[in-house]
């Protein structure tokens, strides 16, 4: 599969020997495992470069996209969720609830294509592919961030509603604290814990979702690299990409766990 179809039997045999395909499965796995510990995933079959370096080179682009998407999500979702909860059952609440529901049900890749259709094809406002300027970042970031936006909006709303019905909020109001401080200081701080949790989990969704978004917008990140690597059967690159994306996700969740202790002093790290 990795050699030209007209390769001779000896060539195939030599190639298998060089690649170590003739060794028992467990030996191959052991070699992979020891290599992976040292950051050595082998050479990319297609590019002839170390797979690890190829993936690392693409990491910044993926982080940029995921970070931008998360920023979009937080900037839209938290205010929307708070307003929905404070002004419950008003027009604003209905609009934000419906938009959140739609956002949660919309496939990312379709949203991406529709955004390209409207903003690139019809109005020619924003570029539809590539990376470079801030304008290149707008459509992919919105596409990738929408699902997360929808989830965080719904979570913020329900969290705030729960907190706002607590006794200490009534106490604060009773002793004459005006509306804004109650919402921002008393309520939001207590509603923040589930939001922080979900942000950690959502980052995994974003890193995974970048696979599709990067493919649509030809964004030169790890996601697109790994899809191409799978089509090319370039397994060292696939392994390196999955390994690095997963490690990132685990690391982020560790940071989130540490953040809890600042938000909720009742939680102590042992």
């Amino acid at each position: 599969m990795l050699l030209p179809p007209d390769a001779s039997a000896e060539d195939v045999q030599k190639f298998r020997e060089v690649m170590g395909f003739n060794d028992p499965f467990i030996v191959q796995y052991g070699r992979f495992f020891l290599g992976a510990l040292r950051g050595d995933f082998g050479q990319s079959v297609r590019h002839g470069e170390p797979a690890f370096n190829l993936v690392i080179e693409r990491m910044p682009a993926t982080f940029e996209l995921s970070g931008a998407a998360l920023l979009v999500a937080l900037c839209l979702a938290i205010p929307a969720g708070i307003v929905s909860a404070v002004r419950r059952n008003t027009v604003i609440d209905y609009i934000s609830t419906v938009v959140a529901l739609l956002g949660q049900s919309m496939p990312t890749f379709w949203l991406g294509i529709m955004l390209i259709l409207v903003f690139s094809v019809q109005f020619n406002l924003l570029p539809s592919s590539g990376r470079g300027t801030l304008e290149h970042l707008v459509l992919p970031a919105i596409t990738l961030g929408l699902f997360t936006t929808a989830r965080i909006t719904r979570l913020t709303r329900s969290g705030m509603l729960e907190v706002l019905s607590q006794d200490y909020i009534r106490t604060a109001r009773a002793k004459g604290v005006s509306d804004p401080p109650v919402v921002w200081k008393h309520a939001l701080k207590n509603a923040a814990i589930p939001i922080v949790t979900i942000v950690g989990i959502e980052l995994g969704t974003l890193l995974g979702g970048s696979v599709i978004t990067e493919t649509i917008f030809a964004w030169p990140g790890v996601g697109r690299l790994s899809v191409q690597a799978i089509y090319n059967r370039d397994y060292p690159v696939v392994q390196a990409a999955v390994f690095l994306l997963s490690s990132t996700f685990v690391l982020v969740n560790l940071v989130v766990d540490v953040l809890y202790t600042y938000l909720d002093p009742r939680i102590r790290l042992r």
């Binding site: 995994g204 995974g208 696979v211 996601g223 790994s226 799978i230 997963s246 996700f249």
Partner: peptide
């Protein structure tokens, strides 16, 4: 299981 980006795993 949760540590792997699901879609990437499925594609692989």
């Amino acid at each position: 299981q949760l540590a792997f980006p699901f879609i990437l795993l499925a594609i692989a």
